[in-house]
Design a protein around this nucleic acid. Structure first.
Length: 511
RNA sequence: GCCCCGUUCGUCUAGUGGCCCAGGACGCCCGCCUCUCACGUGGGUAACAGGGGUUCGAGUCCCCUACGGGGCGCCA
């Protein structure tokens, strides 16, 4: 399974621990790795860090793969299960023991506890110094289980030459002999990572800075095995808007939440890549450009804060740029992930990110009270025909920040007659409006063509002959046709609705 | 507590000793466009954490302080 890299092309990996979802920060790490590999003809591999049996959960693994797939980050081959490599990890631990680079340690939990307490009492940093490092194993107490510890150097320093963090040195006296094999015979994380990265032929390790000290420990294992240390790149973390570690209360941790909020993968990628990395003043970059331009040397060292406003702007840009068929496909893919009933009861924190999925849920609750989930709503659109939705998209996508906005803007299509008008819309339909529309109706019924351009011409003429401003007639039309004061251009709305439906909606409000 | 790392407009960032009385983007504010909302467009607001050095010259180099973050498991 061992691969060499005579080609000089990088082999990188993304190695998430299966926690149940793909963390947004992990998504960016995966993106960095993916871009680096793609840009250099390298390989992007996946490994699941499931050494801990409790994390060995197929559903959690599936969620991560699903997240990566949605983000459109493809990996090579089957994901490696770290847990499955345990025998090989043990083998390496034995080899280290045999070469004198590791030793059996009979320290008990109670003894360790004592050392910890003593260190605390003396206000001195705790560094475990196992007496078994130099003690004759023959003196080992019978029946006491042992761990295997690395015989780490105590003098000098361990250097992590990092492409992102620079040259970081750790004094070996501060690093204790880490356990590589637990007393139950299972490998620990640091051993497993080193062995797997070596066996997978990983040349560059790109991961979060929270692993920086692990890099020092892992370097000691590489050295003890005489293996080549990979190139390190420890990237800064992403924080919430308040600067604290990104957590649930910041809105969204898992990439699947961004999917259900209506973000496009291409937009999320563009947003994420600019967190900690830049290419001059470039903001909107195609995937091809990113692949060409991305380099780990250009990643910053400081953490960044997540800003939904900017993500929204990027997402709006990519929605405008997407073709209509793709947007329909995206909406149909997203809808099943929405539960309007659950969303509608969320009280948005005014300081929290704007949630257009929540806004949509409220809209649905008021306009289509019997619709409970995205799947229900999808059926409504299905019944009208998705082509009607597609026809509405050109004018809708100009003003949508998210796919949820697109759906919300298209709600007028599936609304039931007679339309329930919102408060502002109802106020627009006064006596004057009724008379204007009443005068217009016969012309509409007689109109030879029902296109936006023809309708606009007809309405403009009607406005001129009656001496009314265009807004005086357009606004009430909008209100009667959509139930709202805000919508795409009203002539587009009429065209999409079709003659019969449009005229019927107008008549509904004439009495 | 100890060990590492960081700190440029509200936010993401450009900037690698003179091109910077600091540029771009998002946001925000004021116009224009306009059937509403957007888009687009014109303009505006706003930052080198603080203090010492080095240098003819510092956002850029060095030191200290403050603040922030990460790590200190037989978790990953």
């Amino acid at each position: 399974m061992s691969t060499t890299t005579e080609s000089g092309k990088p082999v990188v990996r993304f190695a998430p621990s299966p926690t149940g979802y793909l963390h947004i920060g992990g998504g960016r790490t995966a993106l960095f790795n993916w871009l680096y590999a793609k840009g250099r003809g390298g390989r992007f591999l996946l490994r699941i860090e499931d050494t801990d049996r409790e994390r060995n959960n197929p559903a959690a693994v599936a969620a991560i793969l699903d997240g990566l797939t949605w983000l459109e980050l493809d990996w090579e081959g089957e994901p490696v299960s770290q847990f499955a490599q345990a025998p090989r990890h043990r083998e390496v631990a034995e080899a280290l023991l045999a070469s004198g680079n590791a030793y059996k340690c009979y320290l008990t939990a109670a003894e360790l506890d004592e050392m910890r307490k003593a260190a605390e009492a003396e206000k001195r940093p705790l560094t475990i110094r196992s007496p078994w490092r130099d003690r004759d194993p023959a003196e080992a107490p019978a029946g006491v289980p042992h761990t295997i510890r690395l015989k780490a150097p105590r003098e000098g320093e361990t250097v992590v030459d990092d492409r992102c963090q620079g040259r970081v040195t750790f004094a070996n006296k501060d690093l204790d002999d880490l356990i590589i094999l637990r007393s139950d015979g299972n490998p620990t994380y640091n051993l497993a990572v080193v062995v797997d990265d070596h066996d997978m032929g990983i040349t560059h390790v790109v991961r979060g800075v929270d692993h920086l000290t692990n890099a020092a420990r892992q370097t000691q294992i590489y050295n003890a095995m005489g293996w080549r240390v990979p190139v390190w790149a420890h990237v800064p973390l992403i924080h919430g808007a308040d600067g604290a570690k990104l957590s649930k209360r910041h809105g969204a941790q898992g990439v699947e939440e961004y999917r259900s909020m209506g973000y496009l993968p291409v937009a999320l990628r563009n947003y994420l890549v600019r967190l900690g990395w830049s290419h001059g003043d470039d903001e909107i970059m195609s995937t091809e450009q990113l692949i060409q331009w991305f380099d780990i040397d250009d990643i910053n060292k400081s953490a960044s804060r997540f800003d939904f406003k900017k993500l929204d702007d990027l997402n709006a840009h990519y929605i405008r740029q997407s073709d209509d068929a793709e947007l329909v496909r995206r909406v149909r893919d997203m809808l099943p992930h929405l539960d309007f009933v659950a969303l509608a009861v969320i009280t948005p924190d005014p300081k929290a990110p704007p949630r257009s999925d929540i806004a949509l849920a409220r809209e649905v609750a008021s306009v289509l009270p019997d619709v409970q989930t995205g799947a229900d709503l999808a059926q409504r659109f299905e019944a009208k025909g998705w082509d009607r939705f597609a026809a509405a998209i050109p004018s809708l996508k100009e003003r949508a920040k998210t796919l949820a906005d697109l759906v919300s803007g298209a709600l007028y299509l599936v609304a039931e007659r007679p339309l329930k008008l919102d408060e502002k819309a109802a106020k627009l339909i006064d006596a004057e409006a009724k008379s204007l529309i009443g005068g217009l109706l016969p012309q509409l019924e007689a109109a030879s063509a029902w296109t936006a351009a023809d309708l606009e011409a007809a309405v403009r003429t009607h406005a001129e002959t009656t001496g009314a401003k265009l807004g005086k007639v357009a606004q009430p039309l909008r209100a009667a046709l959509t139930g709202r004061t805000v919508s795409p251009p009203v002539f587009d709305v009429m065209a999409v609705l079709g003659r019969d439906e449009a005229i019927a909606r107008l008549k509904d409000h004439m009495s």
